[in-house]
Design a protein around this nucleic acid. Structure first.
Lengths: 189, 189
DNA sequence: CGATTCTTTGAAAACAGTCAATCTGTGTGG
DNA sequence: CCACACAGATTGACTGTTTTCAAAGAATCG
């Protein structure tokens, strides 16, 4: 399973095999059956996590019990509560497995050491951060500009693969609408 | 006006005076009267921009002529179309001045050189990027979870100063609702 | 198969948007 | 300094969209 991470790293930048080994030395693997939590809101999150297989979601639960999904992470995506990671404050988000998943974990201190020792990794992480930011901006734009139907069309166009593997009530919650509304929108699309 | 930027930089990290001078050498100042554009959608954006005074907004205009504001930037905030900056593609956003403003501009190539020469600046920029990302995440959460009234309360609580200086129809457009809806929400709050 | 989870449908209510008119404040030019 | 124009905010009546609640149908999994 580390092989998937190694392949990802090498596809993104020219890491030496010594660097790969150093990364592997601090990587821990974790299997998460469907519905199992990686993080509960209120706990402190102190890892960098990379999804090697499956799908997870980051979400909140409001006073009425409704879930609001901040994002999904499938193979080759990073996941975690970055706010908690950097501030040390309790996490505001829950993370659990949408499907049976496998995740690779690196503790914060060890990851910081890697960033310090391996400039290539530092650059890669910053590139990813920048991408995450741009993606977030686009999502904000969609959220404040589009109707329910437009949001769903936009989602389908951006993430056609997600629509096939993620339950619709979760897609609805990601798009900021109810399951019923999404179901009605889908009838039209 | 560079003084404001220098003060900002020194408040954020320990820059040497040589570094400050190197930064100043590539900084250009620009005054923007209210309503003047810094960037039109479709143009390529190739600067890092820092607001030394006033207030600007980043927004799109949809097919019906409605504006959707992605964000505001006041004194000591950075602004620009990062997507266009990094990819070289035409910008998707417009940027113009909400008030008479002053902006400090550094061309992309020169900024890259600074990042290379001044590790402290590199770290600072990455910290800011990370903050921008976290702020975006929170905004997404608000946009998909809250009602119009909750969105406005949340906005007031996070940015009390904005409510005083930004016209309400722009706040409405930032929150993803119409001016009329915001006006009705305000009557209740 | 039976139980659970997920999706769809219907009807009513709540919410937000639209259109049009009025009101307010501000700033400019005469 | 006043009058007027203009941008911005509010209000009312109406329309349309989305949510809510409840129930019934699929699909999936042990």
């Amino acid at each position: 399973m580390f092989a998937a991470f190694e392949e990802y790293l090498l596809s993104k930048a020219a890491f030496t095999s010594a660097e790969i080994q150093q990364i592997q030395a601090v990587s821990a693997l974790k299997s998460l059956p469907k519905r199992q939590f990686l993080l509960h809101a209120g706990e402190v999150w102190a890892y960098h996590a990379f999804v090697t297989g499956g799908c997870l979601r980051t979400y909140t639960i409001d006073a009425k019990g409704a879930e609001h999904i901040i994002n999904f992470a499938v193979e080759n995506w990073w996941i975690g509560d970055r706010q908690s990671l950097t501030t040390g404050q309790p996490a505001t988000y829950n993370i659990d497995a949408v499907e049976d998943s496998t995740v690779l974990l690196i503790k914060r201190e060890e990851f910081d050491q890697l960033l310090h020792d391996i400039p290539t990794l530092n650059e890669l992480i910053n590139r990813i951060l920048q991408n995450s930011f741009l993606t977030s901006q686009n999502r904000i734009h969609a959220a404040i500009s589009y109707s329910a139907e437009e949001k769903y069309r936009d989602f389908l166009q951006k993430y056609p693969a997600f629509a096939l593997r993620i339950p619709q009530h979760m897609v609805a919650s990601y798009l900021g609408m109810t399951t019923e509304t999404l179901s009605r929108v889908r009838r039209k699309v």
